[in-house]
Amino acid sequence: MVDPAPIVVENLTMAFGSFVLQRDLTFTVARGDIFIIMGGSGCGKSTLLRHLIGLKSPAAGKVYYSGESLWDSPIEQQRQILQGTGVLFQRGALWSSMTLSENIALPLREYTDLSAAEIRDIAALKLALVGLAGFEDYYPSEISGGMQKRAGLARAMALDPEILFFDEPSAGLDPISSRLLDDLILELRDSLGATIVVVTHELASIFAIGNNSVFLDAESKTMIASGNPKLLLAETKNPTVKQFLTRGASAALAT
């Protein structure tokens, strides 16, 4: 028997009240994918992420995690499904009243029976993995934005999740930090075997790390392309996708 894919989205419709943001989204994220959710600003990329990580319920459609429907499960089971995921929020979203070490320790204390010393060691390890060794006792406000983001990643990895979500990982980072974060994402996929979903509109990252994608279009309110971004760039006939993937160069050529 084949393992069901980590995430399957079926006919998902996202709406705020009667305002439909996107409809009929259907895609599958395979194990080991680095899956890109892309599209112009305001098309609903981040909202789609909020649907996947259990923060906003869909107006219609299903989200399956390894065959289990997230939004039809009772709250306890939802919690269990989501324990297998980690999220890096756009601005890190570290708990500002706690040190970095305590930030990473919180999920571990919640879900494991490890001793305080063991938890501290794991927190130090996770921080070291993202290049922040020695920053255990700093508060989030005492470190730079890029460091906050990496610390957020360390927290997302606290429970060794099988699926990692990234919301605009390169937003607000300089090109080099952004590149380093991309390398880190690739490294995590290869070494931990994690499945990764990234919301971004940063072309350089899309081509550097993505091997599968969906393209959300604000105009037609649905997905208008999917697949490997590099192949999409070469093969797509859709002018909107083409324009996005070439930074508008194809439109400039056409006129």
């Binding site: 923060l55 995921t85 929020f89 919640e110 927290r155 429970l159």
Partner: peptide, 8 residues
């Protein structure tokens, strides 16, 4: 949101 996604 970060608390909620961690099931806290």
């Amino acid at each position: 949101d970060a608390l909620k996604t961690l099931g806290v």
